[in-house]
Amino acid sequence: MTEQALSVWTRQKRGREQPALSREQIVAEAIKLLDADGLDTLSMRNLGKQLGAGATSLYRHVANKDELIELVVDEIYGEIEVPEAGAASWRASTTVCASSVRAMILRHPWVASVLGQIGTSYLGPNVMRLSDRMLALFEEGGFGLEEANLGLSTVLSYVIGWGINEAAWMTSLARSGLTEREWSARMEPAAREAARSYPRLNRLYEMAALTSGEETRQDEFTYGLDRILDGLEKRP
């Protein structure tokens, strides 16, 4: 009995590839489907139709949908910008990278529902490249390798957690067919009524009315990232 591979990154490629269809084509088309319609509509059958091929043709390259998800997640990680070590200060370069991770998640909001399910994503070549280059940034900032790994994990945990929540909100907003301003306008009367007995929340709602949703989200993301970087800079 053939032992089942635990991940697309641990499975040996088949000797013969179908020349009319490549893994790269499959991954690119899968990302298009996911961006357009979300995770629920992705299936090997639907993907095969988009590519003009039968589902069996896809199985020459990926064993199942789980492997396909591993591939598409690694592909979009390749979009993340990581400055070369020494191109700017450690903090500035880390901020660029963190902002790029957030932007990637917002471009592909479906990824919010799969990141926690892919325990082997760290084996993908783009994730490996991202991790190694970010470790180099931390080393440039005076971190030893082990501490650089801890610092990197802390930053990415914050950014990915923030991005997942933000992507979930943007997905819900898109389903409603409303803009953020329209949503806020509709919800404001109910929110103010609910907060009437809570003075601090009431003041926050009044302050929030002065800014747009996008501006607020950006400011809150930047605040959290800056406080994490402050702590890392002041480490003993």
Rank of each mutant, 00 (worst) to 15 (best):
S57E: 09
E70S: 02
Y122C: 00
A55V: 02
W90P: 13
W9V: 07
S121I: 14
D66Y: 15
V82A: 09
Q117H: 08
R45A: 05
T95H: 13
V82C: 12
V127A: 06
S22R: 04
Q18N: 12
Y77K: 07
D74I: 09
A5D: 01
A28C: 01
V101G: 02
I80L: 09
L68G: 10
L6K: 13
S22D: 02
R102K: 11
E17A: 14
G38V: 05
K13E: 06
Y59A: 01
S7H: 01
V27A: 08
R129Y: 00
R60I: 01
L115V: 12
H61W: 08
T120G: 00
G15D: 13
L47F: 03
A85S: 15
Q50H: 04
D74A: 07
V8C: 07
V82H: 13
V72G: 03
E29S: 07
E84P: 08
T2Q: 09
K32Y: 00
C97V: 10
Y77P: 03
D35W: 02
H108Q: 07
L71V: 04
S43F: 04
R107T: 08
I118A: 01
I76K: 04
S121R: 14
A5I: 03
R102A: 02
G119S: 04
S100G: 09
D37F: 02
V96F: 08
P109Y: 11
L58I: 13
R14S: 13
E3I: 11
H108N: 14
Q4T: 14
L106A: 12
S121H: 14
R107D: 09
I69G: 10
H61Q: 08
H61A: 06
W9F: 14
A85G: 09
A53N: 03
I105W: 10
S43Q: 03
L6R: 09
W110D: 05
A53M: 02
H108Y: 11
G15V: 14
L6A: 12
R107W: 05
